[in-house]
Design a protein around this nucleic acid. Structure first.
Lengths: 335, 335
DNA sequence: TCCGGTTATCGAACCGGTTCGATTTTTATC
DNA sequence: GATAAAAATCGAACCGGTTCGATAACCGGA
């Protein structure tokens, strides 16, 4: 592999001139620039990114830390970020924390050791320790999905209150009163906001929430399954179930199928967030989805702005909150 | 951030001794080792991975290049590789080529520039140029999923012939004769092997394959949808459809639903490879699945072996082929 | 006590770039 | 043609480690 010294030797200039010419042509005379350029071509020189990062103290890489790369929600965001970064000569390193705080922190520290230019983080935890950790990150960064109280950073996400409220309103409009809610972990902002959307919409419609109809599904498939079962074995069953995310809602569908309930005949179901292949799932689930492409675009643009625009790094953090979209299915019937 | 010189100063030894002590304790006397260790702790020294990689000419990172990180098939492999790598103090960088050859090559070259210790690659292409490219990679590597003719590297994958044959045999046993096959791109080894499994099993059962029943679904959802439609509008419809992968099969299910066909009442359906949430899809699709966890484990072990065991890098390439597993559903009926 | 052979430590060169102050060359002005 | 200012180029130090040949300290045996 050719080094910058090979280029310098061939072009008969000093190493520093080559470096200057490559990073800042225009500060070099026309003819030396040409000599250097042809020398670069002749030896097939490509700068070593490692050496560059070491010397500059920062690389051209962007870290993306998510809880589950398999989640299509993150997939769209990844794609947008990658494409946008590539246009700006940056390279995205994807890492997966599996939703574990320890792993996440290790990954972030590793990425910082790699002197990444920026970080897109989907927070996986909360609390003072966690906030302290995130606040200690000095690299340009954008948080997304999960808004964490106390973290003063750019945030990009959806209006989760609205998401919960929209589906609740939809069910109320269809005449449902016995509406159950499979909640997520309440310490998570997305979960508590969705729940708040449910509760407040019920309240303003003057419908009481039966405490037995609110169960904790932890946003996971297994907990959601158990929670759904608890709902389905009650003597006075709900007429509709609102899943706070895709995993708990589909787990509820599974539970319903296994117990022989018909959806929407016996029980209506709706959920927040899409899944792949939702259009071949019977019934088509009524849902509220996030505009992941747009979210990804905002994350990408904001992060690159902080990285590349001088002075932008000092700008105060900003929240970008998008409205989710209602996608009707045929899993909710009028009662 | 503390550097190795800070440690050396505090421990009153030379920089080289510190480096030696850290990478090879045992070659350093007990008392200096202790002095160095406490100095490390005192200043909170952590070696800069970038500088280390530059000096050593190789890093502790492993590159994983796949066509679609959202595919659960890759998800399991990623997880296994990550866990295993972590145990061996390596760090996995995930990248997504979106199945594009150009992108894949750029990613690989970038990773090599980062001086990765090893590479796990799911090839996205084929042909002489591509083989030349892959063969030019000098980093320890393991290919998986797609076996490419001409590439002399370790390969880990499933017996795709068997996968196709198993499902074909299943349909034959149920009495089907008019069996349709939605194929993948025939230049891909997985696709052609699955097809071969279908054709040869049909032949040895003495059942003729109707050419109109073999359509090209490109392994994609959109092409699979079109292909399925072509099957469904024929006057003499097949009684069963075998999808060469999950995308084309589910696209076929969608097409059937949209045209009002009942599965398995009107047409039976089965597929190769699972998807997330397949258990809430009605009907439960009969399928043959790969043991992704095991595949991931083999990939991880083999790659780490080549990386860490001296001499292992020179071992001749080896193929690891696992048998897929039959998972019965209720999407195939007896005729 | 002297010698040969280990074992421990050190210094210097190196990995491949960047950066900045100093020096040289060019250009403009008088 | 001399001179100041501007532009181009260079040299050396640096980023933070590793590596290897050389030197120094230590050991047991003659």
């Amino acid at each position: 592999m050719a080094t910058i010294r090979d280029v310098a030797r061939l072009a008969e200039v000093s190493v520093s001139t080559v470096s200057l010419a490559l990073s800042n042509p225009g500060r070099v005379s026309q003819k030396t620039l040409e000599r250097i350029r042809s020398a670069v071509a002749a030896v097939g020189y490509v700068a070593d990114p490692l050496a560059q990062s070491l010397a500059r103290g920062r690389s051209k890489m962007i870290g993306l830390v998510v809880g589950n790369v398999g989640n299509p929600f993150f997939g769209d965001i990844r794609r947008e970020l990658e494409n946008y970064a590539l246009e700006h000569e940056h390279f995205v390193l994807i890492t997966d924390s599996s939703g574990k705080r320890e792993r996440e922190q290790a990954l972030v520290e590793h990425l910082i050791g790699l002197k990444i230019a920026g970080l897109a983080l989907a927070p996986s935890s909360f609390g003072p320790d966690y906030v302290r950790f995130v606040e200690s990150i000095k690299v340009p960064m954008v948080c997304f999905d999960q808004k964490v109280k106390g973290i003063e950073r750019d945030f990009v996400g959806s209006d989760n209150y609205l998401a919960g409220a929209m589906l609740t309103e939809h069910l109320l409009q269809l005449g449902h009163r016995r509406i159950a809610f499979i909640a997520g972990p309440q310490h998570m902002h997305t979960a508590s906001e969705r729940y708040r959307g449910f509760v407040e919409t019920m309240a303003s419609a003057g419908v009481e929430v039966n405490p037995n109809y609110v169960v904790d599904g932890q946003f996971t498939r297994s907990a959601g399954y158990e929670a759904a079962m608890r709902l389905l074995i009650q003597p006075e069953r709900p007429t509709a179930i609102l899943g706070a995310n895709n995993a708990v809602a589909l787990a509820a569908l599974q539970a319903m199928q296994e117990l022989g309930f018909n959806c929407p005949g016996d029980i209506s179901l709706c959920m927040i967030d899409d899944v792949q292949w939702s259009n071949v799932i019977t019934p088509r689930i009524t849902m509220v989805v996030q505009d992941t492409l747009k979210l990804g675009g905002i994350i990408a643009r904001r992060l690159l702005q902080r990285i590349t625009t001088p002075g932008a790094a000092a700008e105060p953090p900003q929240d970008f909150v998008l409205s989710p979209k209602f996608v009707p299915g045929n899993s909710c019937r009028r009662v």
